[in-house]
Computed example of a mutant assay.
Amino acid sequence: MKRIVVVTLLLFTTLLLVACGPTQSGFNQGSNITVYTRDTTSGTRAGFMEGIGFKDATANDSLLVQGFVIQDNTQIFTSMQTDVYGIGYVSLSTLNSQVKGLDFEGVAPTVANVLNDTYGLKRPFMYMTRAEGDYPSETVEALVNAFVAYLGTTDASDIINNSGAIALPSTATWDDIKADHPITNQDNSSVTVRFGGSDSIQKVAEALTNAFKPKAGNFIAEHDHTGSGDAFKRTWDPAIKDTSVGKDVGFSSRYFTTSEIAGSNEDNIGQLAWDAIVAIVHKNNPVSNVTAQHLKNVYNGTFKTWNDLITAQA
């Protein structure tokens, strides 16, 4: 009888270690989850929180788990390369094999799945330009107008898709419309056009301007991306737009807010692409799929350890 009790205790201890202790890869499921997020002005945060059913946390840090870490898109991606017990989220255009991108509701985060509308965590890539006549020069304004027109071409669609975002449907080529923008035929190598806003869009924006510059007189594209909240501020806010940080084109990885639209002109606003948001973890993390409820429970503190999440998936 005593031997049976001992064997039973050993079996129970083994099961407990399997459930809460290290796995074969050395991942300790009993470790606390380190939660990474973006700041409250981030379009990525807005899209992520809305996508997991936690919209109230978009602009309210007090609703998040205690001890969360705020970082930008690049910092979160870098952190997941070293923080074995961390979880964060980034733009699909940032994702590569250095971290593990998690499936969402059983669907892999791929361009194809965003286009066929099976991947649920997606958000728009938007742009905003300065008001008509409110540019450093007529040349800059004409170049911005040409660039916006370029965004609607198949030439730009190829660049957008190759940069990890998802282009909107288009049929016109740049050759079809370039005659409408004679500014692109002159030497613009001394002209600077300033781009900013969402850092999630920076990779796509830089690829687009690099492709467009040779088509538009080789103007200088100055990129300074500090977050979606600055797209409006640096192109339309009277207190900021004409300072040294003012921009000619601002990008947002979310829809512009009611107050932003009210303070600007809808004729100067448009969408250039779709993007997916991906929950990411360290490559040694055994988790491969999460649901909206799982992520909400992580971010609101219901799940405190990785074992909490893994057990919920069983």
Rank of each mutant, 00 (worst) to 15 (best):
M1G: 14
I4C: 11
V5H: 13
V7S: 14
T13I: 14
L15R: 00
A19T: 10
S25V: 09
G26F: 04
F27M: 06
F27L: 06
N28H: 14
S31K: 15
S31P: 04
N32T: 12
N32K: 14
I33V: 10
I33W: 06
I33Q: 01
T34E: 15
T37R: 00
T41A: 14
G43E: 02
G43D: 04
T44D: 10
G51D: 12
I52S: 02
G53F: 06
F54R: 00
D56Q: 15
S62Y: 11
L64K: 06
L64Y: 10
V65G: 03
Q66I: 09
G67T: 07
N73G: 07
F77D: 04
T78Q: 13
T82R: 05
G88V: 02
Y89I: 08
N96L: 08
N96T: 07
S97Q: 15
S97V: 14
Q98G: 12
Q98R: 15
G101Y: 06
D103I: 01
G106S: 10
V107G: 01
V107T: 13
A108R: 03
N113L: 06
V114R: 01
V114I: 15
N116I: 03
N116G: 03
N116W: 07
D117T: 13
D117E: 13
T118H: 09
L121I: 08
M128W: 03
T129Q: 06
A131N: 13
E138H: 09
V140M: 08
E141A: 09
L143Q: 03
A146R: 02
A149V: 04
A149P: 03
L151K: 00
T153H: 06
T154L: 04
T154S: 11
S163N: 07
G164M: 05
G164W: 02
A165Y: 10
T171D: 05
A172W: 07
W174K: 00
I177F: 11
A179P: 04
A179F: 09
N185V: 12
N185F: 15
Q186D: 13
N188F: 07
N188V: 04
S190D: 15
V191Y: 05
T192A: 14
T192M: 11
F195A: 00
G196S: 09
G197P: 03
A205M: 02
A211P: 02
P214T: 08
K215R: 12
G217A: 11
N218T: 10
F219Q: 02
I220A: 02
S228F: 05
G229E: 11
G229N: 12
G229Y: 09
G229P: 10
F232Y: 15
T235D: 07
T235S: 07
W236V: 01
A239G: 14
D242P: 03
K247E: 06
D248S: 04
F251Q: 04
F251G: 01
T257E: 09
T257I: 11
T258H: 02
S259V: 15
A262S: 15
G263L: 02
S264L: 03
D267C: 08
G270R: 07
W274D: 11
V278L: 06
I280L: 05
I280K: 00
H282E: 08
H282K: 04
K283Y: 13
N285Y: 13
T291C: 05
A292Q: 01
A292W: 00
A292E: 01
Q293N: 13
L295M: 13
N300V: 10
G301A: 10
F303L: 01
T305C: 01
T305Y: 05
L309G: 00
T311R: 07
A312I: 00
Q313I: 05
